[in-house]
Simulated assay, not measured.
Amino acid sequence: MASQTFGSSAEWEDCSFRLFENQSTGKYRLLTLLGGNADQRNVSISATELVPEYGYHENLPVIYLRAAGQGAYSPAPNLPRDKNIKSSRKSSVSSNPGTSLATSLYYKFLNLIDMFNFQQAFMGETIEADVQNIRSVRYTRGFLSGEHTTHRARIQLWKPSATELSGGTSTHRSSLVMNGRAPTMRSTAPTEVMRVKATRLVIYLDGIIISIFVTDDLVHATPVNTTRTLRIRPSSHRTFNNPSSVKACVLGDPKRDLIGGFRLDKEGLGIERQDTFEDFKWFEIEFQTEAECRCFGEDFSAALQQRRRERLVVEELKKKAGRGVKAGEAVW
């Protein structure tokens, strides 16, 4: 069951939450039930951001919604970097009622399953792997930048849900009901056999989010002398015209105390915009244990192999379609 703060009170209140989507208008209706009271908000997916606050703090299962700024890299409101979340925080972007958020909405969860299902309902991506306490993340940002090290981070692998369509906004999103029992996901989306699903590596560190697509552009390895470290760098196979850098989308600006978040329409975050992402030379993720490193490396490899298999299937289906052959029919 989620809890939410309202008004000027800093206390969490037990509640039930329901999310509805109007596909014709591109808006969500958020219904929060607190005892005998109900709070209802209409928000636009193109004007709202989801901030996984849990990614920046260990043992703080909180997600909040805020009004979005301009563009894909819109910053958060000027929030104090304090683990104690206050309900009096306001969004830096005012808006008309019913179209966007004038006040940030905070939700605290009793378990990770509820929290991740809540996030999936908005973002259309499932969390396939999650490591909460990374020892350090090292990287070089750009070709003229020095090495940066961040201690204490969180990393995840996101995979598009079966209902998520290419280009951001889905026309077949799942509905979500959270009422203290197991979340119920409902969807009537058709199977998408003609699209390669791109797994996303998400790194939370120092108030920013780094999003990297797991593709053939990347290679990863665990050095023999540092068996708790996973290295990610560009592929050296120039045959496929791979980029010479790791392309990553960066959200947030810790120097200005602006926390990274995701726009609900994921404008600018899709793989079709990957060429516009920032350039990194490499990443090194140091885990707490060898077992964590090995397990996450296996998940990373599985995501890469699945993408390759799906790409081959899609390419074959496109060839058949070009010859006028329907999917499932044999070709002699």
Score class of each variant (00 low, 15 high):
His151Tyr: 13
Asp216Tyr: 05
Thr103Pro: 00
Asp279Glu: 15
Arg233Cys: 08
Lys326Ala: 10
Val196Glu: 07
Trp332Ser: 02
Phe143Glu: 10
Trp282Val: 09
Glu147Ser: 03
Phe17Asn: 01
Ala38Arg: 11
Val177Tyr: 04
Arg141Gln: 07
Glu164Asp: 05
Glu164Tyr: 05
Val246His: 00
Thr163Gln: 08
Ser236Thr: 13
Leu101Trp: 00
Glu286His: 09
Val62His: 11
Thr239Met: 11
Ala303Val: 08
Arg238Ile: 09
Trp332Val: 04
Leu258Asp: 04
Gln23Leu: 15
Ser245Lys: 01
Arg41Gln: 14
Thr140Arg: 11
Gly98Ser: 11
Ser46Met: 07
Gly207Asp: 04
Val246Cys: 06
Ser187Asn: 13
Thr103Lys: 11
Thr188Glu: 10
Tyr28Ile: 04
Glu316Tyr: 06
Arg66Lys: 15
Lys108Ile: 03
Lys247Val: 12
Glu278Tyr: 10
Arg195Asn: 15
Gln305Glu: 15
Gln288Tyr: 06
Ser74Met: 01
Gln132Val: 03
Glu192Tyr: 03
Lys318Ile: 12
Thr103Val: 08
Phe300Ala: 02
Arg231Pro: 03
Arg238Thr: 06
Pro52Phe: 05
Val131Trp: 11
Met185Thr: 11
Asp130Val: 04
Arg29Met: 13
Asp265Pro: 11
Val43Cys: 08
Leu165Gln: 13
Tyr204Cys: 01
Lys197Ala: 09
Thr126Tyr: 03
Thr229Asp: 08
Ile259Thr: 15
Arg152Met: 07
Thr99Pro: 00
Leu144Tyr: 12
Asp253Leu: 10
Cys15Glu: 02
Glu21Leu: 10
Ser235Ile: 07
Phe287Ile: 06
Ile203Ser: 00
Asn96Trp: 08
Leu304Ala: 14
Leu205Asn: 05
Ser8Trp: 12
Thr140Phe: 03
Ile208Gln: 15
Lys108Ala: 08
Arg273Ile: 01
Leu230Thr: 02
Glu11Asp: 15
Tyr54Leu: 01
Gly324Pro: 06
Ser8Asn: 15
Gly180Ile: 04
Leu50His: 13
Cys249Thr: 11
Pro52Trp: 13
Tyr64Phe: 14
Glu49Asp: 12
Ala327Leu: 06
Gly124Phe: 00
Leu317Val: 03
Lys27Ile: 07
Leu79Glu: 00
Ile208Glu: 14
Glu125Tyr: 00
Asp82Cys: 05
Glu310Lys: 08
Ala248Leu: 09
Gly261Ala: 14
Glu278Phe: 12
Gln132Trp: 05
Thr126Phe: 01
Thr289Trp: 10
Arg41Ala: 12
Cys293Lys: 08
Phe118Leu: 03
Ile63Trp: 04
